[in-house]
Design a protein around this nucleic acid. Sequence first.
DNA 1: GGATTAATTCAATTGAGTTGGTTTAACTCA
DNA 2: TGAGTTAAACCAACTCAATTGAATTAATCC
Lengths: 417, 417
Amino acid sequence: MTRKDPIAEAAATSSSVALGGNAERTRSHNRRVVLETVRQHGRLGRSDIAALTRLTAQAVSNIVVELVAEGLLAERGRRRTARGQPPVDFEVNADGGMTAGMEIGADRITTVLVDIAGGLRAQRTTTLPDASPPAVQALAALELAAARRAPGLPKRLLGCGVVMPGPFGVEGMSSIGDTVLPGWANLDAAALMTEALGCAVTVENDATAAAVGERLYGRGRDRRNFCLVYFGAGLGLGIIIDGQPYRGAYGNAGEIGHVRVVPGGRACPCGGHGCLERYASANALAEMLHDSGREAAYEDVARLADTRDPVVDRWIAEAATLLGPVVALLENLFDPETIVLGGTLPDVVMDGLVAAMQPLPLSVSSRSDRSVTRLQRGATGRLTAALGAAALPLLDTIAPKIDRVAPPEPIARAAGR
Amino acid sequence: MTRKDPIAEAAATSSSVALGGNAERTRSHNRRVVLETVRQHGRLGRSDIAALTRLTAQAVSNIVVELVAEGLLAERGRRRTARGQPPVDFEVNADGGMTAGMEIGADRITTVLVDIAGGLRAQRTTTLPDASPPAVQALAALELAAARRAPGLPKRLLGCGVVMPGPFGVEGMSSIGDTVLPGWANLDAAALMTEALGCAVTVENDATAAAVGERLYGRGRDRRNFCLVYFGAGLGLGIIIDGQPYRGAYGNAGEIGHVRVVPGGRACPCGGHGCLERYASANALAEMLHDSGREAAYEDVARLADTRDPVVDRWIAEAATLLGPVVALLENLFDPETIVLGGTLPDVVMDGLVAAMQPLPLSVSSRSDRSVTRLQRGATGRLTAALGAAALPLLDTIAPKIDRVAPPEPIARAAGR
DNA sequence: GGATTAATTCAATTGAGTTGGTTTAACTCA
DNA sequence: TGAGTTAAACCAACTCAATTGAATTAATCC
């Protein structure tokens, strides 16, 4: 009859377990639901919230009182209606709090402060002379402090999201090569940055952060399933499933840059040849520009694209040819509501890409009755990664999610033997 | 000040809304959590359940009493432990209920009855002379009734899952071509079958159903994220994310069969050329066997594979060559815990495929410290689709899920103007 | 200005989990 | 063999938060 201890067993397999609920968790869930509903619709009366969430008006009323008291919601006066007592509208209180987003690249740090209503309240960029952990820690702390000196900011800082070349802690294919910052490999970046910044830090890769940014502030505002193709140094894919970022079982989902699209093509640091990101990425464009003796800083690229520079056009044509089938592939696999293009390329270039990819290849998304376009440029512009980073802590605050947790510690339990 | 009615607006965009919780929903959630936990671990005492779910022993006790009274859990005696009062173990009561699964193909119907503990309790196959809706309805009802006459079955039938060539209601790429049963296009198959069978029917495609089957009874039992590549008439992909089947925004996710793998290759009913499923699918193998004058029924294929028939070997080699990169692609995009092969091919053939694909191409899944193999054959064998179908209703009963719902009807509300 | 309508609040009730104490069933050791 | 120890399970009182039903409030309609 002797068996292993089921608790120890669960901890060993590290399979997460669904969490039971209770009254407090119900409240916390409902608070999130209310906030998310208001955020999504912009401005709602208590009854509207009740109807949308299927809570009673009374429950909503209680929660709203709480949220207003905490400064998360703000009253916005009565709406005019046909009959009956007009509802008092509420919206997310822009001054109720803010989050920070930092994009740490090899040579620069971009910092943004975003309020909980999605408004950009401060923004800084500085060069990073030394990317070693202590230097980054110091400079990041300074930059955040400097950004917080902007006038009229919300007082509360709810958290900080950091985007940096990853991955961290996961031994993935993409960790081989030149993506990780020198000296950061195998370090717990989130812990280091939490220590440096003195507030809760979430670390995420650029593509996923950008997708979260679009989800909260951009094209994904009322989308629950979409993909974001991110043009950075490489090519990334951010995946939003059921309103939440999808990271995969080991945090490596969306590694799209190393799909082989040109058999026997350009060599890639990953060891392969003809990888997609050797053609379709900001780096690939910069290389092409360099090879033809042109400047390739952001402003240069924007200018060149504006003037329909032949090299830029050539890159767009090539990238579009290779990306088209990949877009169709993503549609066939994920069946998203839409696919968004984001990243560090100027809007003109993105628009050029979208245009050059038309008509898109046949896929399950080729329906005639679409209400959303299959492919579009993101709405958060050049700051997309930093804004996405800032959105990360907010997602935890706002988005209702299923509560699931690692199995409990088997410590202090006498295991059966 | 005049604005649109937010409720009508929400209904129009049909974006689903998170649902508020209350005491009853908490209970229902906790019941599911308890059931799921017991199902996953096989046999647990009340305290174990409490520790795993983070509920109090008391709450668990109450719920267990309820579940035992309803016949869903069964007491299994005390376990031997070192000290203290030994716990009473519980497990899912195999006689507490069952679900039916039907696989409706172009020429046959397979029916299985599976109890809630995952045991196969009855199984039938019959030929389907006429695939028109009325004929299928009549025969399916007869088959289900016949299966239910097997001795010693659980009394309760909790629901019925049906797998049939889809898709239904969605105008997808794959609906073009020969996949849909004649006469079923644009019909509400779930409603028709519910009416015919007299119990709640879920309709699903083969690949997703198979994935759900593996999730509950097979290789996915302790996996929360995996993909299942399904070899049927075509080639499908079932995706399990966070323990739940992922169907995409419009129910078309996992359309993997029409990835172009051979430029300028064999023509495909979808209109393209060189689609994966023209090479890697049960149909493709059958075609190849026919062309060389061999029989291609299931038993024939199994026999031929056993004797290492050169044609079968050739098919395996070809399919493996084409599937290898696709497996790597899936790993890079979904980062699953594992990828499972399932479908209507004999186990020998599947095993041959898995072997022939080694070594797998580099991907984010190429880690040295893996505890689960990257690619494996499914555990549910030839009945995989039917068993998966039977698992569908159970998933709703057992698996905890976030409650989310379409927005409320705007009827009977005076819209502001 | 009264009737009507819809939003909101008030007060009592209910469901379900938690807390703290008690009982029960095994093992350990003298 | 029996007292002591330990962990499981149960009992009863309590608390949280949502629901229910009635009352109040603030508009428009006529």
